[in-house]
Amino acid sequence: MSDDLILSPNIDGADDFYADLLATHEGLSKEESDALNARLILILANHIGKRAILTQALAKAALNPGEDPS
């Protein structure tokens, strides 16, 4: 696994994934959804594991290309 964050399309069945994601939130209050999102981020981060990739992901998510350390 390379140390580069993948930013090209990489999800198999993207529409199905997106629908599953929203279905997981269905019926939750705002707080419950926020908490679910937080848990989800931590689970995915643990799966990725590599600090170099996580660092890039944090920067990309901030949408601040200028401060991007990658």
Partner: peptide
């Protein structure tokens, strides 16, 4: 910014 999000 990122191509990956476009199919979504």
């Amino acid at each position: 910014h990122y191509e990956f999000a476009r199919p979504l």
